[in-house]
Nucleic acid binder design. Structure first.
Lengths: 341, 341
DNA sequence: CCTGGCACTCGGTAGGCTCGACTGCCAACC
DNA sequence: GGTTGGCAGTCGAGCCTACCGAGTGCCAGG
């Protein structure tokens, strides 16, 4: 599609622009090693690259900057060309992080998002694994005094799910008693322990109306997992977004999107489903407010089946080789870490 | 300290500057109702106000803008002067929010931070109540397979605390068995159920070494509550920070602070301890990166004893009457809501 | 003590100028 | 034909100047 020289020139332009954020002219490219041609030749080639949509000039008599298509070519050529590496300091940081890491899953994921953000100097997103596949280790119903009760389930992957219930009232206006709650709790435990969260089945009735009612409500609460999205997204280094753009309006827009966790989750999932690792600009990821942004994602595969997702969000002129390397390394080590438990 | 006319002029300057973000000149003040004097007189008064540190001019021949001291006077005079009101639409929004609100505590607090942010158009912070006073309703130790186990405690205020443990190894290299875990779990439950989280006491020994060891570790894990800060801070509308300043560097700094939850929690707690409702500028809140920011806080008092904290963070030239009104209303209604359970 | 008037200051905007970094094109060359 | 050096043309950035207007400080008169 692009002959070798055009490809080399395009690569040079992208690399220079990523580094300097300034439009790059033919002379700069001519000086770059790897391109053996005079500036005039390069001018000719660049004008073709522009006609084909890989480059644009902000105005006549300025250098050129890559279009989203240009970045796309660069990223694609990168894969075969040899991926980037983290420098020694960064590798040490990752290593020390994962040997140090311990404790709650949520805490670790949150810290991981900050690590990834530090490594890339962009905003990072970490999404916890869905626990469809996890099995229930323990479940109970706990009355909190008053009319409310809590259904608490401990899952095999170390997460805890909880749902609030309103206790039904007796005819006399008093909430159902501790005995009923305890009965429902043991019944629930008997039925659910060991089951995967995705297939709760139906709890067998006890015959006692109040208990069965509570049992049904508990099952329904556990099944309706709308709290899933809520606690499972970790955004690290959002403030770094402010470095990436100098228009405050752009920063505002991007931060606004980051606050909508649902959108972020959907975005990353969608990219993985489409088999993409990098999405450049609105055409590829589909979010107009993020028109000037690219997304780099990777799945996190733990031991058993599906894992979580990590990604970074930055300006389209981000350092792709480094971003890809960072995301790859972190996803791999995080996966291994989660495998261990 | 300030005669009536100076006070009126200062108020007028503050109000105008809050609205327009432009330095305000003597003529504007003269036109404002509530100040009966010619622009020349006002000029004289303003020059005194400047000498006394309430106003500054960005440069000669420009209008004046309030200093932090000026804002302080404005806010103080506000209290006696009659606090601001939310408009009808906003009051309706608050009302509908709290009738709609239900479900998990954390989810509700997170939504509340977004509500408060919408009302004030600034960034809002909500801190969950500390659960020193809450009592333990249920506690158990759950093995997760492998070497890890989880201590899970359900508290009377509806929160769930969990801690990860590494199971000790037998001499043969196998982790301690399910029997030991179960024994420790029932023992722990027997000892802790009904106790306030602040005073765990010491669990009585069983005599069996493996069980006692696990018991000790569980107690230690529960006592070392370092996860408290982690899940208990909710920041809403951080993107609105980008509207408040037009220097992208300022936005960056403020967002950076917001990411350090510990700093935010300490800040709000500190202000409440000092009995402050409003802290204006670095002199009052002590954080240099937030030099151009003010903080408005209010405690949230639920039924029993100490509650959480809510607050907003915005530029020093925020609309104080509205901010105070919004924080007051939300804190009050949130407190009532939490009382109900 | 207040007020109107006047001189002065200074930031912001617009126009004109130069400088420099580009490009596009063309003629010459390999 | 592809490549190259040279040259004219373009346009933004930076700088200077002039001008306008908002606003102040001061003063003399009521």
């Amino acid at each position: 599609m692009l002959d070798d020289r055009k490809a080399a020139i395009l690569r040079a332009v992208v690399e220079e622009y990523i580094e300097t954020a300034q439009p790059v002219g033919s002379q700069h490219v001519a000086r770059a090693r790897g391109v053996q041609a005079s500036s005039a030749t390069i001018r000719n080639e660049m004008s073709v690259l522009e006609r084909d949509g890989y480059l644009v000039q902000p105005h006549t008599s300025a250098g050129r900057i890559p279009t989203d298509k240009g970045y796309r070519f660069f990223v694609d050529s990168l894969q075969s060309w040899g991926a980037g590496q983290l420098n020694a300091g960064q590798r040490a940081e990752v290593k020390s992080f994962f040997t140090r890491a311990h404790g709650e899953l949520e805490h670790m994921l949150s810290e991981t998002s900050q690590l990834l953000s530090r490594l890339t100097d962009h905003t990072a997103v970490v999404i916890a694994p869905p626990h469809e596949a996890a099995t229930i280790r323990s479940v109970q119903v706990v009355g909190l005094g008053g009319r409310t009760a809590l259904v608490v389930a401990v899952l095999s992957n170390g997460t805890v799910e909880k749902r609030t219930l309103e206790l039904a009232l007796h005819e006399d206006g008093e909430p159902v008693g501790a005995g009923v709650v305890a009965a429902a709790s043991t019944r629930l435990a008997g039925h659910l322990t060991g089951r995967p969260v995705g297939q709760l089945g139906v709890a067998p009735a006890t015959g006692e109306a109040a208990v069965d009612h509570l049992l049904g409500e508990s099952m329904a609460a556990l099944a309706g997992g709308h709290s899933e999205e809520a606690g499972s997204v970790f955004v690290g280094g959002a403030s770094r977004m402010a470095n990436a753009f100098d228009a405050v309006a752009t920063v505002r827009q991007v931060l606004g999107i980051l606050e909508e966790q649902f959108v972020v989750v959907t975005l990353l999932r969608d990219l993985l489903d489409r088999g993409l690792t990098v999405a450049i600009g609105a055409d590829e990821h589909g979010l107009t407010p993020l028109a000037e942004c690219s997304v780099v994602v990777a799945p996190v595969r733990g031991g058993n089946g599906e894992g979580g997702t990590i990604g970074i969000l930055g300006p389209t002129r981000m350092n792709y080789p480094q971003a890809l390397a960072a995301v790859a390394v972190v996803s791999q080590r995080l996966g291994r870490r989660m495998e261990e438990g």
